[in-house]
C-alpha cells in the first residue's frame, strides 16, 4: 500500500457522469476519484455499465453529462492531451492479427513518437519478459489467447502512460494464466502506472487497492476489499457481491 498516497490530487476525477443511449441510462451519475499509483477495480455483472464508463473516460465515447478529468486534462475539450497520457486495452483483442508482434510494436511506438533506439531496447526487454523472443516475427493472429492478452497489455503500457485502462483484460483464459497476467499488472503498478481495471471475476477484485461495485449503471459500493468484506460481513469479495445483490432485491 506504500505506493498509494491519498493526499495527492486524483489522477481521474469523475463527477455525476451520465451516459444515456436514447431513454436507456447506461451510466447513472457516477462519482469517484482514482489516485495516482492505485489499482482501481470496476466490478459488476455484464451490462452493469463498466465498459461504457471506461470508454467515456478514455475519450472513445461522448458522455451525456457530468464532469470528467484525466491526468489534469478536461474530458471534453482536451481529449487528445488525455490520450497522450493513457494506455488502453479493450475487451475485444484489437491488435493487428495480420501483422507480426514486432510490426505491431513498431506501429504503436511510432504513433506515440517513441524513437527507434528506445523502441528497439524496450522491445527486447518486453519480449524477454514475456518469453516471446522466439515469436518476434510471428503473426499475432497465431498466438494463443493468453499470450495475446499479455502482449496487448504490454503494448498498452509501452509508452509508459500515467494511467492504463483495462477492460475485462483476462476474459476467457484459465486461472493460472490469469494469475500470471496479474503479475504483469502488479509490476506495472510498481513502476508508478495507475491501473483502472474492469472485471466480473470476484477473485480479481481481491488484487485491487479499491473497488467500485456497479449494478444497473450505478455505483453501489466503493472501498478497499478489506473494508467491504468487513462491512458486509463476508470472507470473500464473492460474498460481498452476493450480499449487495440480495439487498437490492
Amino acid at each position: 500500500m506504500d505506493r498509494i498516497n491519498p493526499e495527492r490530487t486524483p489522477i481521474i476525477k469523475v463527477e455525476n457522469l451520465v451516459k444515456k443511449f436514447g431513454s436507456f441510462v447506461a451510466d447513472d451519475n457516477l462519482t469517484f476519484n482514482v489516485y495516482p499509483g492505485e489499482i482501481f477495480g470496476f466490478l459488476g455483472a455484464n451490462g452493469a455499465g463498466k465498459t461504457t464508463a471506461i470508454r467515456m473516460i478514455c475519450g472513445l465515447l461522448e458522455p451525456t453529462s457530468g464532469r470528467l478529468e484525466v491526468a489534469g486534462y478536461d474530458g471534453y475539450h482536451e481529449r487528445e492531451k488525455i490520450k497522450r497520457n493513457i494506455g488502453y486495452m479493450s475487451q475485444k483483442f484489437s491488435l493487428y492479427e495480420d501483422l507480426t508482434i514486432y510490426e505491431n510494436i513498431r506501429l504503436f511506438a511510432g504513433i506515440y513518437g517513441i524513437s527507434r533506439k528506445v523502441r528497439l531496447e524496450k522491445t527486447d526487454e518486453m519480449l524477454k519478459k514475456l518469453q516471446l523472443e522466439e515469436s518476434r516475427n510471428k503473426l499475432v493472429g497465431g498466438l494463443p489467447l493468453g499470450w495475446k492478452q499479455k502482449l496487448a497489455f504490454s503494448l498498452a503500457i509501452f509508452h509508459h502512460p500515467k494511467v492504463v485502462f483495462l477492460d475485462e483484460p483476462s476474459g476467457g483464459v484459465d486461472p493460472l494464466t490469469r494469475r500470471t497476467f496479474w503479475d504483469l499488472i502488479n509490476e506495472a503498478a510498481h513502476q508508478g502506472i495507475t491501473i483502472f481495471v474492469t472485471t466480473h471475476y470476484m477473485d480479481e477484485a481481491e488484487y485491487c487497492d479499491r473497488v467500485a461495485i456497479m449494478s444497473e449503471g450505478k455505483i453501489v459500493a466503493l472501498d478497499t476489499p478489506a473494508a467491504l468484506k468487513a462491512k458486509y460481513q463476508a470472507d470473500s469479495m464473492d460474498g460481498v457481491f452476493l450480499k449487495i445483490a440480495r439487498n437490492k432485491e
Partner: peptide, 13 residues
C-alpha cells in the same frame, strides 16, 4: 468491424 480502430482512436493520432 474488427475493432482495431479503437486501439488507434485511444492514441493521440
Amino acid at each position: 468491424e474488427m475493432g482495431t480502430i479503437e486501439q488507434l482512436n485511444v492514441t493521440p493520432i
